[in-house]
């Protein structure tokens, strides 16, 4: 089980993440939702071992993640929000390096990479440098790098960003399948439709704090609204989107 206990991240006086607590069991796919700047990516980076929390603990299988970083990272697959990938390398070389650092056997590694590249329709481009790739192609390489070692925990931060429809559907189905196989999946996004279809449970974050943590079904019944979008709007949006759109239009026409 992956557990966050009052995890916080402060920058000076600013609390990016404030006492966030939740636990994810194996087999659960959790949707991590929130508007821009809510602290989603910060939380994900703290779990991934990239940003040290200023408070609280992250526990996996009874061990403190930040005291056993290498051990935890061996079990972790992470797709970052900002793809700052080595652009001078080819996709194949990049995945070979990642695979070797993850101690995947050489014979299996090459076979795996070629398979991933074929499925993601990058078979013909895998030896080209990543600098020439589109955003979606880079995302496919990052997803492959996160899945290569069959991780126990999967952190996906806006994983469908830039992906074509077919690949997006494949990834969506893959997330479901992985959760069914007993993996822990945390899926951070602000695209509610996808989260609704992928996640068995949602955590809604607003201004660094958890606003709701339950299954979509329970939240619907509890809040008496028909969709996740309505739940989200009630919890984190206090303005009427229609009124805001009208205000924007009038601002555009001013002057």
């Amino acid at each position: 089980m992956l557990e966050l206990k009052s995890v916080a991240k402060k920058y000076g006086y600013f609390k990016a993440v404030d006492a966030v607590s939740f636990a994810v069991k194996p087999g659960e796919a959790v949707g991590y939702l929130g508007p821009n700047g809510a602290g989603k990516s910060t939380t994900i980076k703290m779990i991934a071992g990239l940003l040290e929390p200023t408070g609280g603990e992250i526990i996996y299988q009874g061990r403190n993640v930040w005291k056993n970083l290498v051990w935890f990272k061996e079990r972790l697959g992470y797709v970052p929000e900002e793809p700052a990938i080595y652009s001078h390398m080819s996709a194949y070389d990049y995945l070979i390096m990642v695979g070797r650092l993850r101690k995947i056997k050489e014979s299996a590694l090459k076979h795996k990479i070629e398979g991933f590249m074929e499925i993601f329709d990058l078979g013909g481009d895998m030896h080209s440098e990543i600098a020439s790739f589109s955003k979606g192609m880079v995302q496919k390489v990052l997803i492959s790098a996160a899945l290569l070692h069959d991780p126990e925990v999967l952190l996906l931060d806006e994983p469908l960003s830039g992906l074509d429809v077919t690949t997006a559907l494949t990834v969506r189905e893959l997330v479901r399948r992985l959760a069914a196989e007993g993996k822990i999946v945390i899926y951070s996004s602000h695209i509610l439709e996808i989260v609704e279809k992928v996640a068995t449970r949602v955590i809604i974050l607003y201004q660094g704090r958890v606003q709701a943590d339950d299954s979509v079904e329970n939240l619907r019944q509890l809040m008496k609204v028909p969709s996740l979008e309505d739940i989200f709007n009630q919890l984190v949006k206090h303005e009427d989107p229609g009124a805001l759109a009208s205000e924007l239009v009038s601002l555009m026409r001013k002057g």
Partner: peptide
């Protein structure tokens, strides 16, 4: 780039 690429690796 080193941080982003090597950071999540064990």
């Amino acid at each position: 780039q080193d941080y982003s690429n090597l950071g999540p690796l064990p």
